[in-house]
Design a protein around this nucleic acid. Structure first.
Lengths: 348, 348
DNA sequence: CTGAAAGCGCTTACAG
DNA sequence: CTGAAAGCGCTTACAG
């Protein structure tokens, strides 16, 4: 683009003052149009909008942030150990933010760190995000929610139990999902069924355990203590826990794990032991991350629509206060996806 | 915390003015201390720093952004289809940003979209990030780099070829990594070797292909055209391309794929065909994403230290201009990780 | 329905 | 080495 008459080559960015001048109104009126205030005459609004469109004006987010005392950022604060979960959730949030002027900023954390809440406090009070999205397990930290409330920072908690009011929750019915896994294994004829659950610091671990027990009970089965082991929602812990079960005196014929990462770990343990999935041991996971369909044999798992959950959470954050007050609880019920990793037990 | 005398319950946030008053200097001097200007007397600096520490003052990023005309954000603009790659890179970037006042904001994109550069233009001119990090394949878009240059937005390109000056590049020697894969397969005794490469729109696909050919040549082998197929760096494309090879007249005994995602796809195709990895077909991947060690048999692959690459990219962005001018090219040479997915071919 | 003034919390440009 | 003034581009609080 050529420039003349000594004007600098950088086409100076147009500001609210330019728009006001061109539209022959005050900058406050332009501000009202930008912020969709109803207190603008229709005619005036159109005139201003025309100028804005013509010159491609876009208000400066940093300036608005300073004046609003609130930035145009949405935070995702997470400690979830599964990369697939994290990426899917990011995608869901971004689906919703894409059409807005909000940006997604990432804030991973470690709940075990001593100053974990302090760091979030700093993050939130510095960045002043519109709100933050909390997937499990950070979502389950009531003290954190309280702190955010005090800071005046909006949040949405994604969790397997109803921890907060509807406008601040995306609920997943993990117990029901786990029950489906139990019914599936029971109806295949399994009786020696084990469960590798996630870290007890995760509410979801309890929900899934409870749901699984309930599902077994429907079939007259009980989850035995020797077949209930605690993992850490990681691949390695899946391997170790599964090995514990495989090399125990009473080897189970089926294992339900608290997430797919651990299920894949169980696959590996079974293989290392020279056994086959599902011939020797059936495995059912939880999450339906992409990996579930990529392992061999393709994994039967309980599907949680993580990306959609991310969308739901972001949508809640963007809602007007009036809508929020009227919001009903958004919840997702997982569904079992039957693939090939669970089959009837071998006849003894 | 109790408050008295009618002061509002929200402890008013301390500003630069408060610090200036308390330290008995002008706010400009406080500003100099914050920005580590050398033009402050040692004594003054210490006095100001003491006040800052005492009151836990932290400058407001939004206000600084407005005055600086530059925000405290670092963007990651990516179109990489592998979730593992994306998460690892994020982690690397965050490792470096953690100790700074910079935040990571995500900007996924689609190079195939007509207005893909336009969207980035809007993102950058609105958010005014300190800089953006471009992993492949967006990193390979010269027109994009030029646009960022014109916008005055710093960037770091992560790529398998030297596309830019050292301060703007993190280079990976993909060709050498692919050559190692070739040497490995050749030395196992394979001759019927196939390659599923990534999208031709990715420079890395060419580099890996070229390197692989070069490696084979060292062993007197040539990559045949019928055994060279193009995938899309996705799992599904890996399945399809591998099936094409498996059901062709001349079935290869080994397949090297352009990334791990496609390698896992190839695993699946082999399994579906009732064949075994590595007994019937050896497979070697590229990237060493976590999945590589989780599949069965554990995958031989070429390791690219993605998280470290993210760290290197972020570090470059944070460098002072003087350091940058003196920066030498940062490069990473991949190394083959031998696991169990490649073995000598069956005797015919 | 509209606007002039003051302010958000910093930095730049200039002066000393 | 230090500071008073002006400004970054918006919005809030108030007035009309």
């Amino acid at each position: 683009m050529e420039t003349r008459g000594g004007t600098p080559n950088h086409r100076a960015k147009i500001t609210i003052n330019d728009v006001a001048r061109l539209a022959n109104v005050s900058k406050k009126t332009v501000s009202r149009v930008i912020n969709e205030s109803p207190l603008v005459r229709q005619e005036t609004r159109e005139k201003v909008k025309a100028i804005i469109a013509e010159h491609g004006y876009a208000p400066d987010p940093q300036a608005r942030a300073l004046a609003f005392r609130r930035s145009f950022l949405v935070g995702m604060i997470y400690d979830n150990p599964s990369p697939q979960y994290v990426v899917n959730m990011q995608r869901g949030i971004l689906d919703v933010l894409a059409d807005t002027s909000f940006q997604l900023v990432l804030h991973p954390c470690e709940r075990s760190e001593e100053n974990f809440r302090q760091k979030i406090h700093t993050f939130v009070s510095q960045q002043k995000p519109l709100g933050v999205i909390l997937p499990p397990s950070v979502s389950e930290d009531d003290a954190l929610a309280e702190m955010l409330e005090e800071l005046g920072c909006d949040y949405v908690r994604i969790a397997s139990v109803e921890l907060d009011k509807p406008s601040r929750m995306v609920r997943t019915h993990d117990a029901e999902g786990a029950a489906q896994a139990a019914r599936h294994l029971a109806s295949l004829g399994h009786e020696k069924i084990a469960h590798i659950h996630g870290l007890s610091t995760f509410r979801s671990a309890h929900e899934r355990l409870a749901g699984f027990k309930a599902g077994l009970k429907e079939h007259g089965l009980t989850l035995q203590k020797k077949w209930t082991v605690e993992g850490a929602y990681t691949f390695d812990s899946g391997v170790q826990c599964a090995e514990k079960l495989i090399y125990s005196d009473a080897r189970p014929t089926a294992i339900f794990t608290g997430n797919d990462e651990m299920a894949v770990g169980a696959y590996q343990a079974v293989r290392k032991a020279g056994l086959q999935v599902p011939e020797d041991i059936s495995i059912v996971g939880f999450d339906d991350t992409p990996m579930a369909s990529r392992v061999w044999p393709p994994m039967t798992t309980v599907r949680l629509p993580i990306r959609e959950m991310g969308r739901a959470a972001a949508s809640l954050l963007l809602m007007e206060p009036v809508e929020k007050a009227a919001a009903e609880l958004v919840s997702f019920t997982p569904e079992i996806v039957v693939r090939d990793s669970a089959a009837p037990p071998k006849k003894v």
